[in-house]
């Protein structure tokens, strides 16, 4: 009997991710465990190992895990993919019986890392936010629009952003940023 093999494949596999030397480059953030949590922030902080930020538009990151503020009662939790199932158990038992929602969206979206000295100009090709360090500092995150795609944008370093985007929009975002890279200097 033939063995059936299910092979994990990212929507980004086979895409040559664009870069312009020194100015900007796009890389695949790789697999991740992702949860959207809605509820009181203090309920899951201990189980997650990172406190959930209550200041709007801020992310807390520590030892490979990150909690991103998406709304007043909504967070995106990121972790290593291998942690996904144990994390799901730990978070749900912390929430046992409490009014809250925890949804595993690990495979719903993909992560892209955009970095380089012209990263703000590149993102501003499709994003209307002021990405200057004074108005969008390291550790700030938000759901927003990149051209026609809804993304989560998180500044992880002065010249580096992480984009989280629905997998079906990933090829569009890659093509858009590829095109935009011709326009930056």
């Amino acid at each position: 009997m033939a063995d059936q093999i299910a092979r994990r494949r990212s929507v980004l596999d086979g895409w040559a991710l664009p870069s312009r030397a020194g100015l900007a480059s796009l890389t695949n953030a790789g697999t991740a465990a992702r949860f959207v949590y809605r509820g009181a922030p203090e309920l899951v902080g201990d189980a997650f190992g990172v406190s959930l930020p209550t200041v709007p538009l801020r992310a807390h990151a520590q030892s490979g895990r990150a909690a991103l503020w998406l709304g007043p009662d909504e967070w995106l939790l990121l972790s290593a993919e291998a942690d996904g199932s144990t994390l799901a158990v730990a978070l749900s038992s912390a929430l046992n019986g409490k009014p809250a929602a925890l949804v595993d969206i690990s495979h719903r979206q993909v992560g892209l890392i955009v970095s380089g000295s012209s990263v703000e100009a590149l993102l501003n090709a499709g994003c209307s936010l002021d990405l200057d360090m004074t108005t969008f500092p390291v550790g700030m995150c938000t759901r927003t629009l990149l051209a026609k795609a809804e993304i989560v944008l998180w500044r992880t370093a002065g010249d580096t952003f992480r984009i989280e985007v629905a997998r079906s929009f990933a090829p569009y975002i890659v093509a858009l940023l590829d095109e935009a890279m011709h326009g930056i200097a």
Binding site: P56, L70, G71, P72, E74, T142, R143, T144, L145, E150
Partner: peptide
């Protein structure tokens, strides 16, 4: 509604 932001 801040639909493409905090959603509220």
């Amino acid at each position: 509604r801040h639909i493409h932001g905090c959603g509220r």
